[in-house]
Amino acid sequence: MKSIRLPMTKEDAVSLRIGDVISLQGMIATGRDRMHRYLFDERPPAAHIPFDLRGSVLYHCGPIVKKTPEGYQVFAAGPTTSMRVERYTAQVIADYGMRGVMGKGGMGAKTLDALKEHGCVYLQAIGGAAVYLAERVTKVAGVWKLEEFGMAEAMWILEVNDFPAIVTMDAHGKNLHEEIEKKSRSIFETLIAPRRGIAM
């Protein structure tokens, strides 16, 4: 498992290849549907965001966070489906300079092009492993737009340690999701081909 310290340099990001299993150390930020639409439509200057996204990872996640006397505590923080923010991601990478986008299920052609253009990778986190992943959050460093967007849609700034992920789209135009889809498609076509009866 390759350990990646955040913020990442462009060289770090470009050195990663699909299939690499990595673990993240450092600061990441969450953002899902509403945050992406906001960053895309309003294009707030980076200075207005209480966290420098450059070199960081934007994590598609709507966590469960509890306010305790000691501060915020992340209870559950698994990935959400990334494809829903496909429309916005290329521009958000161009505007804010993340080196990683993390979620689940992979993304589309526009994002893949943006990863190549800017030197960025897509990371798949383990879907549903919300407690395991929340236990890898060592600190909630801040939150942005909590009142306005609510708990799930706000941007949470999280410090993580040994946070596992798999590189599934890299800066060289390779897409592991696409390769798996292609292989399963040919098996699928054989399985549905006419004249293949099932033994009853």
């Binding site: 709507g62 966590p63 469960i64 559950a76 923080a77 698994g78 549903g128 407690v131 929340a134």
Partner: peptide, 13 residues
Amino acid sequence: AASKSARPLCQDT
């Protein structure tokens, strides 16, 4: 881990 700490095992409940 979820069962031990009685936490929701996925954030999407």
